[in-house]
Design a protein around this nucleic acid. Structure first.
Lengths: 164, 164
DNA sequence: ATCTAAAGTGGCAGATAATTCCAATTTCAT
DNA sequence: ATGAAATTGGAATTATCTGCCACTTTAGAT
């Protein structure tokens, strides 16, 4: 909804905060070449404009005993709006599902599920996912090794020549 | 590597910071029922122990002109360690790839790619992904609608009965 | 039950950062 | 060029961070 009117300094602010969300405003100001006052004002505007949607501490999955990530494909029976909304609301409320997209291709929905181990996953699959209505088929692809995840977004496409 | 020795207060700290990574230490202390000093000490220990791996500002993809998310499946020719490391290093260095896992099932690698639009994706696919060595096949599944993403991790499995 | 040692907590104080206000500067359109 | 609007920088105030130290709680041994 907000129209892009970000200059090079805004981009540097977004990039810096995307890599270190707890950067103090003074340090951020130095990094982007501004004094603290206008820097803070820009950050607030970026927050209010929806360019920054929030801040998160990233947790160590393995350290916290969340050793298993599963990518789950779901095919549904029908695609009418009511069924879809109902399904999506239920999925949205499942804490084990850290991401879910309606996608093209083999499956209708693609989910990323995070659980402690296989036993937990089986329980989640049987008690929760397979109990969903309108589900025709479920495919589980287990993550064997994480190359990268929760990575910052690419902003290079806006760096040169301010986007429209 | 770190052994779990987190009590209920640590869990509340992790949960609170996972939802709001910029919570001030004073507010965090109130929320978890501690005074600021021990609260800050716990946060530092959680950071040093790898339970908190960093902080990120979450950016609005659509607001920033990153309207297209694609889930890409890659099948590789061979699975020896050298080839895999080389491939993974290259993938890791691609800013458009915000996540990548070695997975079981149809594909060997599953990638989440974020780009402005179809034109950008085509360019990325032709100029970057298809230029990777050892790639046998690539499948692109386009995200049509985002139900949820970048969601906090489920910590309920540790809430009651402190984990070992 | 008591004692002891270790760990954890709370409050204080100096240093640092956030936030507001306003004058000065820059930007932009005319 | 000229004026209006937006943006900036600095000072002052307020809030927060952070290290230090004494006190309390906890756990284990006797």
């Amino acid at each position: 909804m907000p129209i892009l009117s970000l200059d090079a300094i805004d981009m540097r602010i977004l990039s810096a905060l995307q890599w270190n969300g707890r950067l103090s405003n003074v340090d951020l100001a130095v990094e982007v070449g501004l004094s603290p006052s206008p820097c803070l004002r820009r950050v607030r505007l970026l927050e209010e404009g929806g360019y920054i949607s929030g801040y998160r501490a990233m947790l160590g999955r393995e350290s916290l005993g969340l050793g298993l990530t599963v990518f789950v494909g779901i095919k549904v029976e029908r695609h009418d709006d009511e069924s879809a909304s109902a399904l999506e609301n239920k999925i949205d409320s499942m804490p084990e599902v850290v991401a879910c997209h309606l996608v093209s291709g083999e499956s209708d929905y693609l989910l990323e599920v995070v659980v402690p181990d296989l036993v937990s996953y089986e329980r989640f699959l049987r008690n929760t996912l397979l109990k969903l209505p309108m589900v025709r088929d479920i495919t589980s692809n287990f993550a064997i090794h994480r190359v990268k995840s929760e990575s910052p977004l690419p902003l290079t496409h806006l760096v040169k020549s301010a986007g429209a």
